[in-house]
Write a protein that binds this DNA or RNA. Structure first.
Lengths: 116, 116
DNA sequence: ACTCAATCTCGATAGCGGTCAAACTTCAGC
DNA sequence: GCTGAAGTTTGACCGCTATCGAGATTGAGT
């Protein structure tokens, strides 16, 4: 019985054309989620869920990742038991030009956000 | 008879250097407040509190104006019994470059926000 | 098969924030 | 001084969301 093992579980991602500004702003207004996005941007590469520095429990982090994904901000896929996270930078840029860069730049000059 | 002076009551305004990204995002995440900012930007001039189109009561609007002012997004001053509102565009631009333009641009292409 | 690591699901809680109506203040004009 | 117009304040309500712990799931390695 050939199981579709080649691809593990698939995760639903919205088309960025369908996400609203409201959704994106709601996603980015939470400091923990903004911390996630900032760390992703700084790393310049994908990160698994467990490698983020955040002052909340893992179950809460799961929730935050869901919100970010449903807002089209990040893309997620499984690699074994790990879940990788990637910024959807270009797509967000085409949908909301300048928005993410502006927030990332501002977050960079912010007084230390409450991470940890 | 001296002309209508704005010095009747003084209103506190924060230095934009002291407002946090968190504050600004919290201010702009509310659709009603974003509607206020959008209308101000489109008008290209100052507007009194009573001239905004918003789906909430006046007391609620007062609250929203307070939030926007404390976030450094708008400047307010009295002219008689009217309270005028002006966008602090340049100041916000120097503090959070590109942020307001990005949000205003995105709001412009949004499906009709619930105004009314 | 067993076990551990990584993540998710569920249920419950707590606090914040948007909302309103009603009463109050402040000013302009008569 | 009145009166009306423009905002504000107060107090209460309510819904939403971030939060957690406990238990379930899924996959890798042995």
């Amino acid at each position: 019985m050939p199981r579709p093992r080649a691809t593990t579980r698939t995760i639903e991602h919205p088309d960025v054309a369908q996400v609203s500004l409201q959704q994106v702003l709601e996603a980015l207004v939470d400091p923990v989620r903004r911390g996630v996005v900032t760390q992703l941007a700084r790393a310049g590469e994908e990160m698994s869920c467990g490698t983020f520095d955040a002052p909340v429990s893992v179950s809460t982090l799961t929730h935050h990742f869901n919100v970010l994904r449903e807002a089209g901000v990040i893309r997620q896929y499984y690699v074994g038991t790990m879940k990788m996270n990637a910024l959807r930078l270009e797509e967000m840029e085409s949908r909301f030009p300048g928005l993410l860069p502006a927030i990332l730049a501002a977050a960079g000059t912010e007084t230390r956000t409450a991470l940890r």
